[in-house]
Design a protein around this nucleic acid. Structure first.
Length: 543
RNA sequence: GCCCCUGUAGCUCAGCAGGAUAGAGCAACGCUUUCCUAAAGCGUAGGUCAGGUGUUCGAAUCACCUCAGGGGUACCA
């Protein structure tokens, strides 16, 4: 319908010699305004210096629309052209859903192209927190959207297991270990205070009981890293997130990639030394102040490997690169992008999604979180409390750019009366009807169903709702905003529940209509299931 | 100071590539079940879309200013 109208109107615009590039078709909010609406007459009014109503009339005067698709068209003040689809056309679309099944909603925008989504990327210094959770679910869902848009997607986790933080971690574990042996030991200044390190120390103790004060800290560091990574990976697995690539920052050093970046920038005259540190002349690139790339201690700042890493991303040839960052990293990426730019590298295909912070509320109090200080709530604890489905839904139902209040008490309380269950119930409700139909001897026969029997208001609204699914996927992809999907699915569930309330599906006195409605419900269930699959939420057959 | 995000119903938030009478969930009040799961549906009430100026036929949506909250502005990541 959309494609058909776009094509027809564009042709007519060209015939009249009017610009066609600003043509827009949208779905009106009100059913009285039709199924598709076009505002081109008002947009052209200024250029053509004519009244919108006149333009609309001239535009439509010589268009012959296929009457099997378009029931009628109307021109309404101040110049909207509204199109109403025939119910035959609409119900016919159900067959399209049934034919596509598990693929319904997919598009080929990214077919033949590759995409990479980098997300989580937490260093292995502690368990994933509630804060990391948002990024985890956001990235994973976006990756799924891209997959549905045809891309071949790589989910990537970038981490650093070298440097100051990791050394502190090793020292902290050593202190915990010695503590267990009853030897005097004190956590280093700024060390990691979390209880999880005591557990790690106990495990280490059971495996290697004979370590002492003189033992090199490297052993502790390595052990801590391995243990904590195991914890992180298990949390990810619990909410259904699997990364394809774990990219170690260290490999950039080993392959000489860090030095390459430095020498390229030095050749371009964009580096200088001051106070024993190496500075990047970002002021020449429009940034307020210069940035340090190598500290006077000889260690690079995080910016340098970030630049080298992104240079590698470009070299790896992805057609689309998406970085998911928390708001606290917002200042890092302009430097990275401008560095790529001065190195003459492609960078327009790199998109950054910044998500705002999660404010955690417990008993009405804001919980300030710090991995080092250990007063954090872990993602695992959250999953324990409310379950993976609820966790995923809560993180994804709000736009990334809005600050998310995660009220633990509310999340728990709402376990009983939760937006997720509303969706899942819609799916289960349909399964339940199918079971009942079978019991009553009604053998579903979608192919033989007379879909023209579906003509009531709530029924048509439900079909329309299901048909919007591919548009929503496309919207998510375009905007890199995934929250549109749960919002949409919720609307779809509402349409289903309304239909259910109004119309009885199984009616042995009217098997024809029953068949038609069963076919519709199958299409709706496919849509719900596909949507839930993208969100990583289970679609139960009964609740 | 400068940069980014946010401000919409009592609460949590959609809507913002400008479009028709601004929506949902929760909370409040009332109603619906001899009938496929009431984890549902219907109704009532609730709004200066933070405030102001501008652009436009048309602004919650765009621009500018102000106010408020969050984040950043490190030789931490």
């Amino acid at each position: 319908m959309f494609d058909y109208l776009t094509q027809q109107i564009t042709a007519r615009l060209e015939q009249l010699g009017w610009p066609s590039d600003r043509l827009q078709l949208s779905r009106p909010k009100k059913v009285e305004n039709g199924d598709w609406s076009c505002n081109i007459a008002m947009i052209l009014a200024r250029d053509l210096k004519r009244a919108p109503m006149q333009i609309a009339q001239e535009l439509m005067s010589d268009i012959e629309l296929d009457s099997s698709i378009v029931e009628k068209q109307e021109i309404i003040n101040p110049g909207f052209i509204n199109f109403f689809q025939t119910s035959d056309y609409l119900t016919g679309q159900i067959k399209d859903i049934l034919a596509n099944r598990d693929d319904f909603g997919k598009n080929e925008f990214g077919t033949g192209k590759t995409a990479q989504v980098e997300f989580v990327s937490a260093n292995p210094t502690g368990p994933l927190t509630v804060g990391h959770g948002r990024q985890t679910v956001l990235g994973d869902t976006l990756a799924s959207i891209l997959t549905w848009s045809g891309y071949e997607v790589t989910r990537e986790y970038y981490f650093n297991n070298a440097g100051r933080q990791m050394r502190l971690l090793g020292e902290s574990l050593k202190a915990r270990y010695l503590e267990l042996k009853g030897e005097p030991a004190i956590l280093p200044d700024g060390g990691y205070e979390g209880k999880y390190l005591i557990d790690v120390a106990k495990t280490l103790m059971s495996e290697q009981p004979d370590l002492d004060q003189d033992q090199d800290v490297a052993l502790f560091k390595d052990f801590a890293e391995a243990s904590i990574f195991a914890i992180i990976k298990s949390s990810l697995e619990r909410i259904g997130v699997v990364h394809d690539v774990f990219y170690n920052e260290r490999s950039l050093y080993e392959a000489g990639k860090i030095d390459e970046v430095l020498s390229i920038l030095r050749d371009k005259g964009l580096l200088y030394d001051k106070d024993g540190a190496t500075w990047f002349k970002t002021t020449e690139l429009g940034v307020e102040q210069d940035r340090v790339l190598v500290k006077s201690s000889g260690e690079p700042t995080y910016r340098l490997p970030d630049i080298a890493y992104h240079r590698e991303k470009v070299a790896r040839g992805f057609d689309l690169v998406v970085d998911i960052f928390g708001a606290d990293h917002i200042d890092a990426y302009p430097d990275v992008l401008s560095a790529l730019k001065v190195m003459g590298l492609k960078h327009e295909h790199i998109q950054v999604v910044i998500h705002q912070f999660v404010t955690l509320l417990r008993s009405g109090e804001v919980v300030k979180m710090s991995t080092r200080k250990a007063n954090f709530v872990t993602l695992d604890e959250l999953i324990d409390e409310v379950g993976a489905d609820v966790v995923r839904y809560f993180y994804i139902m709000r736009s990334a750019s809005s600050h998310l209040n995660f009220d633990l008490d509310l999340a728990k309380r709402q376990t009983e009366e939760n937006p997720v269950f509303y969706l899942q119930y819609a799916h289960a409700r349909i399964s339940s009807i199918f079971r009942r139909a079978k019991e009553r001897g009604l053998v579903a026969d979608a192919a033989g169903a007379d879909l023209s029997l579906l003509n009531e208001e709530h029924t048509l609204a439900l079909i329309n709702a299901a048909l919007e699914f591919p548009e929503v996927i496309d919207h998510c992809r375009r905007s890199l905003e995934v929250h549109h999907l749960p919002v949409y699915l919720s609307d779809l569930a509402t349409a289903l529940h309304k239909f259910y309330t109004e119309h009885k599906v199984i009616d042995l006195d009217n098997p024809q209509r029953s068949q038609a409605r069963l076919a519709l419900l199958e299409a709706v269930q496919i849509t719900l299931r596909n949507g839930l699959r993208i969100l990583g939420i289970t679609a139960p057959d009964q609740m």
